[in-house]
Amino acid sequence: MTKQLKLSALLVALLASTAFAEDLYDTTATKGLADRPGYTADQPTNNISRNNYGECWRTTYFDKATQGAVECGDATAAVVEQPRYTTETSREEFSIPAAVLFGFDKSTLRPQASEHLRPYVEKAADVNITKVTVIGHTDSIGSDKYNDALSLRRANTVRSFLVNNGIPESKVYAEGRGKREARMTAQCEQQVAKLGRVSAAKKRQALIACIEPDRRVNIVFEGVVEKERRVRVEGGK
């Protein structure tokens, strides 16, 4: 009987010891915190336990491939993409046929010219546009001096239209290039030569019609544009 009582007491003590051990090393202590699995944690604070060197204590549940804490040096800090903005210079050039703006050998705007120029007024009003250059071009008929003067008068006429419609005068420039950039001359002269026996007046009219693309006004817009690029940043900083 005495032996049975001693055996029972020993069994009770063993069970109590086991329960105490399980309580001492509960799942929180052995598996670590829910958001930091694989590390032991201090019971009172639930903070990761560390040694005298500040290193974390891992458990057998630690799996670096799927878990770990950044502050313990086991997990990689999150790498995210964040926008970075830079400014770049921009340049756009538009060509307007002179025929829709002026009569032949004229520098006064046609009545319908405003509807063709209105979109360029709106574009020039953009705060990102820093400079507008109006460039006049002529065909190859006539002297260099005459065509230089005519192309500049036309460029200044368009410039005045932009300024009169609200574009700052300091923003708009005019330039006349005359016939220096005429491109149709040789091709059109060959076509006129194929007309055969026709009057000089008809040949002249045919040439004027053929080289019409050389009579133009170009408007160049220069400015700055903000560009966004994505960069990979560790830790989202």
Results as ranks from 00 to 15, higher is better:
residue 100 V to I: 10
residue 99 A to L: 12
residue 28 T to S: 15
residue 76 T to S: 10
residue 40 T to Y: 04
residue 77 A to T: 14
residue 225 V to S: 08
residue 62 F to L: 06
residue 184 M to Q: 11
residue 45 T to F: 05
residue 178 G to Q: 01
residue 137 H to S: 01
residue 66 T to A: 09
residue 216 R to D: 00
residue 134 V to M: 02
residue 192 V to H: 01
residue 172 V to W: 10
residue 74 D to I: 01
residue 50 R to S: 04
residue 182 A to Y: 01
residue 160 S to L: 13
residue 3 K to C: 02
residue 11 L to A: 15
residue 21 A to H: 07
residue 70 V to L: 05
residue 180 R to V: 10
residue 40 T to M: 12
residue 140 S to T: 14
residue 80 V to C: 06
residue 83 P to R: 08
residue 142 G to Q: 11
residue 225 V to G: 03
residue 29 A to E: 08
residue 84 R to E: 13
residue 137 H to N: 13
residue 135 I to K: 04
residue 164 N to I: 04
residue 206 A to V: 05
residue 162 L to R: 01
residue 120 Y to V: 01
residue 39 Y to A: 08
residue 108 T to K: 06
residue 96 I to K: 03
residue 204 R to G: 09
residue 94 F to R: 10
residue 180 R to P: 00
residue 131 K to T: 09
residue 14 L to I: 14
residue 99 A to S: 12
residue 232 R to T: 13
residue 17 S to I: 11
residue 158 V to S: 00
residue 4 Q to Y: 12
residue 180 R to E: 07
residue 197 R to I: 09
residue 158 V to Y: 09
residue 232 R to H: 03
residue 204 R to D: 12
residue 16 A to L: 14
residue 43 Q to I: 06
residue 2 T to Y: 05
residue 78 A to K: 12
residue 114 S to K: 12
residue 111 P to H: 05
residue 57 W to A: 07
residue 166 G to P: 04
residue 152 L to H: 02
residue 169 E to W: 03
residue 25 Y to M: 05
residue 151 S to C: 00
residue 116 H to S: 14
residue 196 G to S: 00
residue 175 E to K: 14
residue 147 N to V: 11
residue 228 E to F: 01
residue 72 C to P: 02
residue 136 G to Q: 03
residue 15 L to V: 15
residue 177 R to C: 01
residue 87 T to L: 06
residue 216 R to H: 11
residue 216 R to P: 05
residue 68 G to A: 05
residue 60 T to W: 03
residue 107 S to D: 13
residue 91 R to L: 06
residue 112 Q to K: 12
residue 24 L to N: 04
residue 219 I to E: 02
residue 139 D to I: 03
residue 203 K to W: 02
residue 218 N to A: 09
residue 94 F to G: 01
residue 209 A to W: 02
residue 158 V to C: 08
residue 29 A to D: 07
residue 151 S to R: 07
residue 112 Q to Y: 07
residue 25 Y to G: 08
residue 192 V to S: 08
residue 141 I to S: 11
residue 159 R to E: 06
residue 13 A to M: 15
residue 2 T to C: 08
residue 165 N to Q: 06
residue 128 N to E: 08
residue 160 S to D: 14
residue 170 S to C: 01
residue 180 R to W: 03
residue 177 R to S: 05
residue 110 R to N: 10
residue 214 D to L: 06
residue 140 S to K: 09
residue 102 F to D: 08
residue 105 D to F: 10
residue 32 G to W: 11
residue 23 D to F: 13
residue 237 K to H: 06
residue 155 A to G: 08
residue 9 A to Q: 07
residue 49 S to A: 15
residue 179 K to P: 05
residue 137 H to V: 02
residue 73 G to V: 08
residue 173 Y to K: 10
residue 47 N to P: 00
residue 65 A to Y: 03
residue 209 A to Y: 01
residue 175 E to N: 11
residue 203 K to E: 11
residue 143 S to T: 15
residue 152 L to N: 04
residue 51 N to G: 13
residue 137 H to I: 00
residue 225 V to D: 01
residue 1 M to D: 14
residue 226 E to V: 08
residue 135 I to P: 08
residue 71 E to N: 10
residue 98 A to N: 08
residue 102 F to A: 07
residue 13 A to V: 15
residue 178 G to D: 10
residue 233 V to G: 03
residue 40 T to I: 04
residue 193 A to R: 00
residue 1 M to T: 14
residue 227 K to Q: 11
residue 161 F to I: 01
residue 188 C to Y: 02
residue 68 G to K: 05
residue 139 D to T: 05
residue 235 G to M: 02
residue 219 I to H: 02
residue 15 L to Y: 12
residue 197 R to D: 12
